[in-house]
């Protein structure tokens, strides 16, 4: 049984990137994917003393956003203007978790936030954010798609690119607007 399992695992790791046949039209043929896998996106693993590069499933499926391939014919997502339906109904505590978690908002990678020992300095510090006196709608748009205010922004368009859902965005707004 154990042998069988390790055999299956080795088999999985040896799968070579498949061609993009059943992907959305315009998906490039030179992307590292295996369409047989649930997450499709592959990451490489270098095996000592081997002439083959192993591939295994990446942490998440990244096939729905554009790549750098010259063969990628899909459009990137354009800037999107949104209106926030009031009331905000966000939960600051949940917002805090989202801001800190690497796999979710990961705001701390670029911004300074209370309680983080290794603040990023790519974006502005968000300490005492409340003092800026921004409207909820303004902050919501900033997180949803900041390109509306600044086309050159490094801020990921969390709403437009489906990185976070609407409630998560509301939680983040509530969290920031409560930072005294």
């Amino acid at each position: 049984m154990r042998n069988l399992l390790s055999f299956a695992l080795i088999g999985l790791a040896l799968v070579l990137p498949a061609q993009a046949q059943q992907m959305a039209p315009g998906f490039p043929g030179d992307a590292a994917v295996d369409l047989g896998q649930e997450k499709k996106t592959l990451k490489p693993r270098v095996v000592p003393n081997s002439g083959r590069l192993e591939w295994m499933p990446a942490e998440r499926d990244l096939t729905s956003w554009t790549t750098l391939s010259h063969l990628d014919q899909r459009d990137a997502r354009r800037p999107q203007r949104v209106t926030l339906e009031e009331p905000l109904a966000g939960n600051p505590m949940r917002g805090r978790d989202i801001a800190m978690a690497k796999s979710r908002g990961n705001c701390v990678a670029c911004h300074e936030l209370p309680g983080d020992p290794w603040p990023g300095t790519v974006g502005n510090s968000l300490l005492n954010y409340q003092r800026r006196g921004m409207s909820d709608a303004r902050v919501y748009q900033q997180i949803y798609d900041a390109r509306i205010f600044n086309p050159q922004t490094v801020m990921p368009p969390y709403g437009t690119n489906n990185l976070l859902n609407e409630q998560e965005l509301r939680d983040l707004v509530a969290y920031l607007q409560n930072l005294e």
Partner: peptide, 11 residues
């Protein structure tokens, strides 16, 4: 969070 390409790809 960007879909990687194969080593040796043109890009």
């Amino acid at each position: 969070g960007a879909q990687p390409l194969l080593p040796g790809s043109r890009a």
